Amino acid sequence: MDMTSDPVILASSSPRRKRLLELADIPFTVLTKEIDETFRPGLELNAAVTDVAKRKALAIKDQVGSDNIIIAADTIVVLNDWVIGKPANKDEAINILTQLQGNTHRVITGVALLKHTKEILFSECTEVVLHPLTPQQIIYYIDKYQPFDKAGAYAIQEWIGVVGIKKINGDFYNVMGLPVSRVLQELEQL
């Protein structure tokens, strides 16, 4: 049963992913279902985030029509071998941002595009380096922007991105949660 007239269904409630699709002038409808986002054992990181994205897409597949394209994504931040999720509280956010500053970390987004029986799965990696930040800057950012729903405890499009990004290698929008230009290229295949 087709629940929408929009051809694209975004399987994410992320305001950042919604905004990126809006910027790309892609009409879409949001439809989500909670899933267990735990990585399956034995998968390397790129495959693991792509697997989570695919599971998000499959969770809603029966609720959309065969002409709809589902876009789902999962984003993680990695420092060395430490996979950094969303901070549970202020102390955890302070610790994460303290560890990230001055070091190169990776932002990996896994993407799943599904249409009926076709699927395209890929991941995108962007390297980011933050300038050294003072403890006061870190606390200011956390208190003002409350980054508790963001992997890595920050959003590049907020204050910390403006004052704190020293270097970025890769897709800026991937750090926001969706490598939208690659998504557009891959949509052409569907």
Rank of each mutant, 00 (worst) to 15 (best):
I70S: 00
P87L: 04
L31W: 04
S181R: 12
S14K: 06
V107L: 12
Y141D: 15
I160R: 00
R106N: 11
I160P: 00
T134C: 12
K166L: 13
C125P: 08
T75E: 01
Q63A: 01
I156V: 15
E124W: 04
F172V: 06
D2K: 10
A112P: 01
A155D: 05
H131P: 01
N95D: 13
E124N: 14
F28H: 09
T75K: 07
I69G: 00
Q189S: 15
V175N: 05
S181N: 10
L10C: 04
S12I: 05
C125R: 11
V183P: 01
I165W: 04
T98G: 10
S66L: 07
K166G: 10
A57F: 06
I35M: 00
P87Q: 07
I94C: 09
S181V: 12
N68C: 14
Q136C: 11
L20H: 05
Y145R: 06
L97G: 01
D62I: 02
I94D: 03
W159Y: 14
E124P: 07
T126E: 01
S66T: 13
Q185S: 15
W159K: 09
I120M: 14
V49L: 05
K56C: 00
T29K: 10
E37R: 00
L133C: 03
E158R: 06
F122P: 06
A73I: 03
R106T: 13
G164R: 10
L178V: 02
I142L: 09
A153N: 11
H131N: 13
K118N: 15
G170S: 08
S5R: 11
D81L: 08
P147N: 14
E37L: 02
L10R: 01
E22K: 13
M176E: 03
T50Y: 06
L190Y: 09
D74P: 08
Q63M: 04
N80Y: 10
V49I: 05
I156T: 04
V77F: 05
V77H: 00
A93D: 06
R106C: 10
S13M: 09
V128T: 03
E186V: 04
P135H: 03
A153S: 13
A155H: 00
S181T: 13
E37Q: 02
D25R: 12
I168M: 13
S181I: 14
K115V: 07
H131Q: 09
Q146R: 14
N46K: 13
L130H: 04
F172Y: 15
Y141Q: 04
V30Q: 09
S5G: 09
E158D: 15
N89L: 05
T117R: 10
D171C: 14
V78F: 07
P135V: 12
Q99T: 01
V162A: 13
D2T: 14
D81P: 11
G42I: 03
